[in-house]
Amino acid sequence: MIQTFSWDHVIFLLRGATWTLSLSIISFLVGGAVALLLAPLRVLGPSPVRASISGYVQIVQATPLLIVVFLAFYGLSFLNIHLPPLFAAGISLSIYSSAFLIEIWRGCIQAIGRPQWEAGDALALSLVQQLRYIILPQAFRIAIPPTVGFMVQVVKNTSVVALIGFVELTRAGQLLNNITFQPFAVFLTVAAIYFCVCFPLSLTSKYLSWRINVAHR
């Protein structure tokens, strides 16, 4: 039976949106944790470590997210690793986020000038102390705006897992489109919900980077 797009359907979409948000938070936290470990190693580690982290980043960034999701969901089940959709989605999105966050944070660490390291050396700080007290606090400050900006991508990327049937916001929209045949109403609402989540993040990122630029002027 064809239904008309109504308030109840908006509620259904909002319920999908909570999954979008949960997935975004999971993949940002897990991806962020991995990147937090790997980004300093990417800059300071011994050269084989640096090369392999760089290789990991290059390969993930050259693969479509959709294929990473498919590999985690369909591919691994053949290795007798059966992941429920939530795990497959979470893992693949985390891998994807980690690759981009490593690059972003590497840039932030490298943006801190050599003299800062040398000053730490002159004060007889150990490498770990230099990182802990001099480099990372400064890198952290400039890392905030691009990281907030990247959260927008994380939220938008979760839409891809709709294609393995994970019912988040986009998949909820697809399902509603199938029973209401009102694609305009359905997908405009879906787009509006994404926009309400992403736009404030974009604005925050823009404001934060503006503030840092002003401080440096």
Partner: peptide, 19 residues
């Protein structure tokens, strides 16, 4: 610019294709 950068490509694709 803001509308297209703050919504997923997949949803834009659905809008163009179905709508």
């Amino acid at each position: 610019v803001e509308v297209f950068r703050n919504t997923p490509l997949l949803v834009q694709l659905f809008l163009v294709f179905f709508a």
